[in-house]
């Protein structure tokens, strides 16, 4: 909820009233009264978004610290436990997210050129990738649960996973579920944002003259991608 609010609030700072004239003059009265120029509005919104992304980095840093601390204490446990995570599925998800980042970057390219149909198609592709990511995640999670690999108290490996019932394996899987879970929540939020953005592009709210919300949503999405870029090797590979 916070994210959508932030998006609307930041976007609000840069909102013009409809008439999408490409050369919006600064005296046309469409500027928020507390800004001097539209350039100032745009810069402010973007800097606000970057600051928000920094808070996301710090939020995730806590989980990375927990991972590093326990990994440094129990490297063997972490090495053994990570065998249970399928690197093929993780790798597939990495590629899916990279592709979605690519489509978002392209969509901004085309909105800057006022080619709105392409923008819409690319954003829909992004949504598709995000959905694919969540589907893969769903099969990974349910696969673990069916063997009794739960975070925390429910941890009771069975059906061939008994060998992984060792001390501190619960810590590894707790960290795994918390990190990927919170990341997954961010993916879902991103999907919500893109649905909103697509609907606004379709309704003609954005153009080469004004596309700030698209750009801010893109920044958010790339950060979600970057976090996964780190999660993948740390949890699945090494």
């Amino acid at each position: 909820m916070t994210f959508t609010w932030l998006m609307t609030s930041l976007a609000d700072a840069t909102q013009y009233r409809a008439q999408p004239s490409p050369r919006m003059s600064e005296s046309s009265g469409t500027l928020k009264h507390y800004f001097v120029s539209s350039e100032q509005q745009f810069d402010a919104a973007k800097m606000g978004m970057w600051l928000f992304l920094v808070t996301e980095v710090l939020l995730f840093s806590g989980m990375f610290v927990a991972y590093a601390v326990y990994r440094a204490w129990y490297p063997e446990v972490f090495a053994l436990s990570s065998e249970l995570l399928d690197w093929r599925l993780g790798g597939l998800n990495t590629l899916v997210l990279l592709a979605s980042s690519f489509t978002v970057a392209l969509s901004i390219h085309f909105i800057q050129k006022n080619e709105k149909e392409k923008t819409v198609v690319l954003l829909l592709l992004t949504l598709l990738c995000a959905a694919a990511f969540m589907v893969v995640k769903y099969f990974e999670y349910t696969g673990k649960w069916s063997h009794g690999i739960f975070p925390g108290a429910g941890f009771a490996p069975h059906d061939g996973y008994e060998a992984y019932n060792i001390a501190y394996a619960p810590q590894f899987f707790s960290i795994y579920f918390v990190m990927t879970g919170i990341h997954g929540v961010h993916v879902l939020v991103g999907m919500g944002i893109f649905v909103w953005i697509v609907s606004r592009v379709v309704r003609g709210h954005f153009s080469a003259a004004y596309y700030t919300p698209v750009e801010l949503a893109g920044l958010y999405w790339h950060l979600v991608d970057i976090i996964w870029i780190f999660l993948f090797p740390l949890l699945y590979l090494i």
């Binding site: 970057a105 893109g218 991608d225 970057i226």
Partner: peptide, 18 residues
């Protein structure tokens, strides 16, 4: 090595995509 590659990827995403 894995962290270096991940770090490089992150920098590229930030520099160009973002």
């Amino acid at each position: 090595l894995a962290l270096a590659i991940a770090g490089f990827k992150a920098i590229v995403v930030a520099a160009v995509f973002m």
